[in-house]
Amino acid sequence: MPSPRTTGDAPATAATDTRTRILRATAMLLQRQGYEGTSIKRISGDAGVTQGSVYHFFPGGKEQLAVEALRYGADEFTELLRSGLDSAEDPAEAVAACAVLLADTLLTSGWTDGCPVAATALETIGASPDIQRAAEQALRQWQDLLTTKLTTGGIPDEAAVDLASTILSTLEGAELLCRVSASDKALHTAAQHLAQLVRLHTARPD
């Protein structure tokens, strides 16, 4: 017989799984179709739940769901960046690895699964402060991750912050070019040039 703890935890676990499926489906749809092109009906269908279940977990409706889905997608993108940054001790090689990983992800998904915040953030600027704030937090999180890698590699704090911003901007722009052209060339080119840029900073004398 299951213990009381196991029995009591089962509904909570099922609820968590359902909520996660809804967030995952929403995050995927937002980065592929944008905010306006994503409906509660489509979200519920992709998640395999009823529309009532979506509103049960997200009573604030589509906007609340978009905010939380952006955060969910941002966490997954953080893991991609962390994987690239952890792949090499040399910050130049690590940054290049991030670009290559992003290129591989895009290629595997048929040029659909890129940055989880870009499309939604641009589409909702001025219309939803909550979504804009979630997107800003995600971008700051990624920049901080890059900054930490750069400072660990010996780049001074202020220079590392600026360089991390440039790296992130380059990755975002290269990703857009890849998706539009259905080619990974822009990200592989970015990998080479970002590595060169990081090496210039690490080679500077104190």
Rank of each mutant, 00 (worst) to 15 (best):
M1D: 14
A10T: 15
A14N: 15
T16G: 06
T18N: 08
T18A: 13
R19C: 08
T20Y: 08
A25C: 06
T26W: 06
M28P: 00
G37K: 05
S39N: 03
S39M: 06
I40A: 07
I40Y: 03
I40S: 04
I43D: 08
S44C: 05
D46K: 15
Q51G: 10
G52T: 01
G52E: 04
Y55M: 11
Y55K: 11
P59H: 03
L65Y: 06
L65C: 05
L65E: 09
A66M: 06
A66G: 10
E68D: 11
A69D: 09
L70A: 08
L70C: 10
L70F: 04
L70S: 11
Y72F: 15
A74N: 12
E76S: 07
E79W: 05
R82W: 02
S87Y: 00
P91K: 07
A92D: 04
A92E: 07
E93W: 01
V95G: 06
V95E: 05
V100K: 08
L106N: 02
L106W: 00
L107N: 07
L107M: 07
T112A: 14
G114P: 05
C115M: 10
P116N: 04
V117M: 07
A118M: 05
T120F: 01
A121R: 15
L122S: 05
E123V: 04
T124W: 05
I125E: 12
I125V: 14
A127H: 13
Q137R: 14
Q137E: 14
L146G: 12
L150E: 07
L150H: 07
T152A: 14
T152Q: 13
G154A: 08
I155C: 05
D157C: 05
V161C: 12
D162H: 14
I167H: 07
L168G: 12
T170V: 07
L171Q: 01
A174V: 08
L176V: 13
R179A: 05
R179I: 02
S181E: 12
S183Q: 09
D184W: 00
D184L: 04
A186Y: 00
L187W: 01
L187G: 02
T189G: 06
A191F: 05
Q192S: 15
Q196C: 04
L197H: 09
A203N: 13
R204F: 11
